[in-house]
Nucleic acid binder design. Structure first.
Lengths: 156, 156
DNA sequence: TATATATAGTTTGTATATGAACAATCAATA
DNA sequence: TATTGATTGTTCATATACAAACTATATATA
C-alpha cells in the first residue's frame, strides 16, 4: 500500500488535487529508481548520467560546460555540483579545465572513459524512455507536458 | 535556461518523450523546493511534514505507525526511516514506543509538539495544493493522474 | 520442538541536495 | 582608477536516500 492508496484525507484540502500531486512525486521517484538500477551495472548513477548527457549534447565552443551552467541546467545548488564533479573526476569520467576567459570558472569536459561510458549508458536510458512512453500518442504526450508545465508555472 | 530548454537531442530517442520525462522530474523538484521553503519558517522539512501527515491521518489502533509502515507508505528505504525518525525524535516531534504485539517493532507516534506543528503546517500545504491545482478542472486532474499512473505502470 | 526463513530496525559507507559563509575574480559605476 | 556589487566555485553543517551487513525477533515447516 502506497501513501497514495493509504491516505484518506478527511479535510483541509481537496483529495483529488492532493492525489495528483502525490502522483507527480511518486512517478519521479519510481523513474529515478529505475534509471539508477539500469545504470548500476555500469557503476553510474542517474545524476552522473545526466551530467554526461549534458556534456555530450550541450557542449559548445569550449567543449564543455561550466559548473554554473551545470547547476542551472540540472536545477541544483552550486555546492552540489562541486561534490558531484569531485566524484566524477575521481572516477576519471570528467576533468576540470581552466576557462581562459574567466579565471573563476571551471570548464567540465568528458574524458575518453566518460565518453565510452556514456555510449553504453545512453541506449539503456533510451530504452527506458521508449518503454515508459510507448503507450502514449504524440498529442497525449504534449498534453501531459502542458499540464506539468502549468503545474510548475503556478508554484511560486 | 533549463535542461529541458537546452537539450537538443540529435538521436537515440524521441525528443517529445524525453521532454515529457524531464517535465515530470522538474515538476517534482520544483514542488519539493517550494514545500520545503514554506515549512522552513516552522523548522520543518517537506519529508518530515509527510511523516506528520501520515501519522495524523493514518494512525489506527495503536495510535501510530511502525517504521516499516512509514517506509512502505513513503516509498523509501527502511534505513532512511531510522535516521529520519532519529532526527524527529531528537526534535521532540515524535516518539518511538514498543509494540506489545511484536518486540521487533517500533510504533512511531506524534508528540503534543508534533501535533501542534502539524496543525500549523497543514494549512501551508493545503494552500500550495490549492494554488497549484486551481487551474485544473476535475476531469483534467483525473486525466493527469491517469497519465502519471500509466507512466508508473510501465516502468518495470 | 528444532530448524529454516522472513521481517523489523540499526549501522556503515556512499551519493545527492541545500543554505550559509568564504575567497577569488569579474563587472559596473562613481 | 577605486569602490561597490555580482558571480564562481569551495567548504561546512545538515538532511535525505540507498544497499549491504548485522542483530533481534517472529513465523513457517519439517
Amino acid at each position: 500500500m502506497s501513501l497514495k492508496e493509504e491516505l484518506k484525507l478527511k479535510k483541509g484540502f481537496d483529495l483529488v488535487e492532493h492525489e495528483a500531486l502525490l502522483n507527480i512525486y511518486y512517478t519521479t521517484t519510481s523513474l529515478k529508481k529505475r534509471a539508477d538500477g539500469l545504470f548500476k551495472t555500469l557503476g553510474l548513477t542517474d545524476v552522473q548520467f545526466n551530467v554526461l548527457m549534458l556534456l555530450h549534447y550541450q557542449s559548445e565552443g569550449l567543449g564543455g560546460l561550466s559548473q554554473a551552467q551545470l547547476s542551472e541546467m540540472m536545477l541544483v545548488n552550486r555546492a552540489n555540483i562541486t561534490t558531484l564533479i569531485d566524484r566524477m573526476e575521481k572516477a576519471s569520467l570528467v576533468i576540470r579545465e581552466n576557462d581562459p576567459a574567466d579565471r573563476r570558472t571551471n570548464i567540465v569536459k568528458m574524458t575518453a572513459k566518460g565518453k565510452k561510458l556514456f555510449a553504453k549508458a545512453e541506449p539503456l536510458y533510451a530504452g527506458l524512455v521508449g518503454k515508459v512512453m510507448r503507450g502514449f500518442k504524440q498529442n497525449e504526450l504534449k498534453q501531459l507536458i502542458k499540464a506539468l508545465e502549468k503545474v510548475r508555472g503556478s508554484i511560486n
